[in-house]
Design a protein around this nucleic acid. Structure first.
Lengths: 338, 338
DNA sequence: CTGAAAGCGCTTACAG
DNA sequence: CTGAAAGCGCTTACAG
């Protein structure tokens, strides 16, 4: 147990509270000898400053909130959320931050979360997972002036800081690869078209085709929901159009698509190449191992927290943007047909 | 933004700080008229007490930590963790607690988490997910005297408070059902035998057979890891023994088992009945809809938090225990063979 | 039932 | 470079 106070450490070190406080906070004005001695005492006693006392006087809680919007249908099946949570957890631990999770499931939650989170002194700042729903909260959060970073660009354009992944570009490159390797009829199973990622990844697909003067055929585009199931049914539909390649907006959907293809008696990649998005844990052990775009989630989370801390320390404006790239990972679900 | 202080509310209400504090904390010694007036002022201003100031003086942070042990192999694929996180989040929100998540991935994390969490004044208490690993941390946590509730019985017997689900009993009833409906060769795919749940659910299987004077056949018992994949491979193995029913220790494994059975050209439940455990979101939409045992996770989390709060408010001893039941849900993956 | 005062454990000007 | 003192925003005996 640890109930020592600054006072105790001061007494044990033979200096004043002020001095101990300075060494704890790395203030320059402490002589080397004193600093080392105090540090030694702190180490031996295992002293840790009382977080509440510190928060009260410094107006910093060293805690950030992660808000996950309500009604995410894939919360229980999509590895994205565990990955995200893990990423934020790691980033916070590295930066010595504590991380509180807020799941927003209905309007009351929204109200309650807002009123807690907007209390200055509670959270240093908020990470907010972008999604089409929960926008009311987002607006209120922005207005409240609390440091705020959106994970993924906001669905509608807003004056906010965010970290995003260049979905358009990444996907466009993957589809270009299919084109370069001789694929003639490339379909796509998109994410929900009321989410930013869903829209952007579809856009990437279209841009690649247009850049190569290929007319976009709406029949080769099916909207999914990121789930395995929706990939399966989407592929069933696409199969009527005889595609020789398909880009799906998530690994889960890619897995579903491969299931549909095999069920039809066709082969991946023999008859149809499949590219996913995410490179989540199940992508490489899949059969065949999935060609996909690797989301740099760990880095994404780290950048988000870094940005949040910068908002806290250096002010909210100007708005910050960080855009990361996904890496194209070629495995066995695609084949060169040229 | 909310930067009002008690002082402000006191002035606006024409009373002292003490009185405002009393109405906020529901102390009885406030006249009805004053109480209502102050409450009205609070409502209108949207005042919220400063959490750090409150925590400092009351020695309560109204925050609990959830520690998830390191090296959980199924963290990204098992819906258990999102479900658990959601459950704790809901319970905390109901009890007006904030919930901080600690993911323990390696030994440094363990050290860091312990030193933060054991600082009195940081967390009111800790919820600790039981697992075979992370036991060193568990011991230190117990020794530190911080209020602590284990989620699931600890792997080794210990002097701690915990909430558990009666796995032995629940499984035993499910297997009894198979027996009662004329199944003659019942196999099981267990969870890892170095986890409490893995052991207990296997025990339930054995008890049901023994109660019916059936000799336990080791060839009908295969150890899995809770994953779909391990259910698939486990079933492949069991298939050699021609079972007519199988209990798997998780829904994921049940799904994998059904995949293996279908691949063999056999039918569920026509040839083999399958029972899972969890009743997670994917159990009922499965084909056929899965007969399973429903974990009362929401209630489980709620009881755990209630216990933790009682530990905080009424002291650590005596150790508390709460054991919940799983509900047997009969759907389409089992058939009466009698 | 109500208020004035002390104190929780820190940080941070201020003076030396 | 160091210490004494004020103050962060609350709660809680204590006195009335």
């Amino acid at each position: 147990m640890n109930n020592l106070t600054l006072e105790d450490i001061a007494r044990k070190s033979g200096v004043s509270r002020s001095t101990v406080s300075r060494v704890i906070n790395d203030h320059p004005n402490v002589s080397k000898a004193v600093r080392e001695h105090v540090q030694e005492v702190i180490r031996q006693t295992g002293y840790r400053p009382h977080p509440a006392a510190r928060a009260l006087v410094s107006n910093r809680s060293w805690t950030c909130g992660l808000i996950l919007p309500r009604a995410i249908p894939t919360f229980f099946t999509d590895p994205y959320y565990p990955c995200l949570i893990q990423g934020i957890s790691q980033a916070c631990s590295k930066k010595n931050y504590t991380f509180s999770l807020f799941l927003m499931e209905n309007e009351e939650d929204e109200e309650q979360i807002f009123s807690r989170v907007s209390r200055r002194g509670f959270m240093d700042g908020i990470l907010f997972q972008s999604y089409q729903i929960g926008d009311a909260l987002l607006d209120k959060l922005v207005d409240s002036g609390i440091p705020l970073v959106i994970l993924g660009r906001p669905f509608q354009n807003r004056q906010v800081s965010y970290v995003d992944i260049n979905n358009i570009d990444s996907v466009s490159k993957a589809v270009q690869y299919l084109l370069d390797t001789g694929h003639k009829r490339i379909g796509t199973i998109t994410g929900p078209q009321n989410t930013a990622v869903g829209i952007d990844r579809r856009m990437g697909y279209q841009q690649a085709l247009q850049r190569n003067k290929i007319i976009v055929n709406e029949k080769l585009i099916v909207e999914g929901t990121f789930t395995e199931e929706s990939g399966y049914w989407g592929m069933k539909q696409l199969l009527r159009e005889n595609p020789d390649g398909v880009f799906t907006a998530s690994d889960q959907m890619a897995l579903g698509a491969m299931r549909a293809i095999k069920e039809e008696g066709l082969d991946v990649p023999g008859d149809i190449s499949v590219i996913g998005y995410d490179d989540f844990p199940m992508a490489s052990p899949a059969h065949p191992a999935l060609t996909t775009l690797r989301q740099p989630i760990a880095q994404f989370c780290f950048e988000a927290l870094k940005m949040l801390i910068s908002l806290v320390e250096d002010g909210l404006e100007p708005y910050r943007r960080v855009i990361l790239q996904s890496e194209f990972v070629i495995r066995d679900s695609t084949r060169d047909r040229s």
